[in-house]
Write a protein that binds this DNA or RNA. Sequence first.
RNA 1: GGCGACAUAGCCAAGUGGUAAGGCCGAGGUCUGCAAAACCUCUAUCCCCAGUCCGAUUCUGGGUGUCGCCUCCA
Length: 508
Amino acid sequence: MIKVFNTMSRTKEIFKPLKKGEVSIYCCGVTPYNAPHIGNARPFVTWDVIRRFFKKSGYEVRYVQNFTDVDDKIIKAANEQGVTWKEISEKNIAAYFKSMDALNVRHADIYPKVSETMEDIIKMIQTLVDKGFAYVLDNGDVFYSVEADKNYGKLSGRKLEDMMAGARVEVDNRKRHPMDFALWKASKPGEPSWESPFGAGRPGWHIECSAMSLKYLGEKFDFHGGGSDLIFPHHENEIAQSQAAIGDENSFAQYWLHNGFITIGNEKASKSDKQMVKATKGFFTVEEILAKYAGEVVRLFLLQTHYRNPLEFSEARIIEAQEFFGKLAKAYWQLDELARKVHAGEFIKDTGEKNFAITASPACGLADLGERLLSNFYAAMSDDFNTALAITYMFELAKEIGGYYGGFVKGEILPVTIDGDIILRTRDIYMEMAEIIGIFEQPVPVTKAEEKSDESALVDSLMKIILALRQEARAAKNWATADKIRDELKATGIVVEDTPQGATWKRA
RNA sequence: GGCGACAUAGCCAAGUGGUAAGGCCGAGGUCUGCAAAACCUCUAUCCCCAGUCCGAUUCUGGGUGUCGCCUCCA
C-alpha cells in the first residue's frame, strides 16, 4: 500500500492506480531559457526516485516531462544574444541533460516540446472556444474565461473574488475578467509565430501542459507534479482548461504532488533574483555545484529531506552530505570485498543442510537485520516517498556492515563461520536500496588506500616507499621523523592513518 | 487583503494519542608512541495559551513567528 499526499485534498491518500500495475506521470519540466539551478533539480530528482520506487515495486511506469521551448523569456534571451529562440532552447536543453545525467536522473519516456505539439495545442484551444470556455479578441489573442468555469480555483483553494482585493493583478481591459489568462498570443514583430484559426501567434503559458499530457497520457492519468509555486496559477489553469476541453471534471491528473522549495539564506532560490545569484558566488546552477561536488552527493543532499519540506541549501550542508555519502560508500566497498571472497570460495557457501557452525555464525544477525531494514525501507518509501527516513535505514545497514567487516578483519569472525549466501544477500539488499535512492551508479569513491585503483601506479609505488621508510622510523621509535613524514604528506593533501593492519593513505 | 505550508536538541532532520529515529557538532571513554580512523556512552518534556481525552509533541480552537503563492518562477 502506497500513500501519497495529494495537494487537491490536502491529505495523504491511498494510491490506487487507474490501471492495475501501471503508473502514469506527468511532471512539469523546465523552460529552457538558461541553465538549471539547484532549485530546479529538486522535482526531477524527487520524481526520479518515485519512478524508481514504483518500478522496483512492480509497476510499469510511463513518465512524461515537457520542455516549454516557446516562451517570452526564451525569446527575450534570443533577442538579447542575437540568436534564434531555437538556439537558446537547444543549448539549455543540452545543459539540462548534462546536469540531470550527473545527478543520475533517468530519462523520461517522452520529452514533448511546445514547438512540436503545436497542432494539438491549437486543436485544444479551438475546442475551448467552441465550447464557450474561451473567447477570441479582434487582434487574435485568445483568453480562457474563468467565469465560465464554476470549478475554477479548486486546486489552490482560491475564490475569484478573494484574489481581487489587494492582489497584484494586472489590469487588461480587453479581458472579460482580470483572472482570465491567455491561451494564444497574437504574433508580434520579432517573435516566432505559428498559423492558427485565430491568426498567427504562439501559445500562452499553461496550455502546452494540458495538450501534451492529453496527447501522451490520455484524458486521465495518475500523477501530476512540480514545484509548489506551480499550484497557482499554472496547475490551476491546466486543470481548468483540460477538464473544460475534455468535458469531465474527474478527468486529468488524479493525484497532485508538489515539492517544497530550495531556499538560500531562508529565501526561495530563484534565478530571477539577481541578488541571490550574486550572493551565491558561482554556486547556484547545478553545473557550478557539480564542479566541486559529485552528482551523487548533491543527489543525496536533496533526498535527505522529505520532498514536501523546504530545504535550505548551503555549502556546509553539501559537505555534510558528502561525508554521509562517504560512509555509505565505505560499506559498499566492504561488501564488495567480502563478496569477492565468497566467490573465491573463502567462506562457507552451502546453507542447504543444518550446520551448527552456520547457525552460530555472526552473519545470521546481519541477515535478519538486512531483511528487517529492507522492509523498513519500503515502508518508509510507501509513506509518501519518505526518502529521508529510508536513507537512514540504509545507513543503519551500512554501520552494521562496517562492524561485521571490522570483526572479520580483526580476526574476531573466522572465515569458516561466515555464510557466503548471507553476505551476498546482504549485498543485494544494500544495492537494492542504493538503486532506489539512485546512488552508486557512478564510480564509487574508495575510502581505503589499497583499493585506490584510480591512482597512478607511480604514486602508489612512491607512497609504498615513503610509508616503508616511515615504518622503519617508527620501529626505531624515531617518532619525530615518523610524525614529520606524516605532517608533510598532510600538507600536500595526503592523509596517513596507522591501523592494526599497517599504515594507509588517502587524499584529503 | 485572500489562500496555503511550516514551527521538534547548538545545527540538520524523521516520527507517534501513551512521555521523541537518525546524522553533524560537542563531551567522556576504548584503542594508539602520538594523531587519525573505528567503536562505545552521554546531550530535547517537541513555539505559546486554551480545549477534548485516563493521557497530546501528535487532535480541535486561538495566538505568535517564519516561509511561499496571488506577476515570471521547480
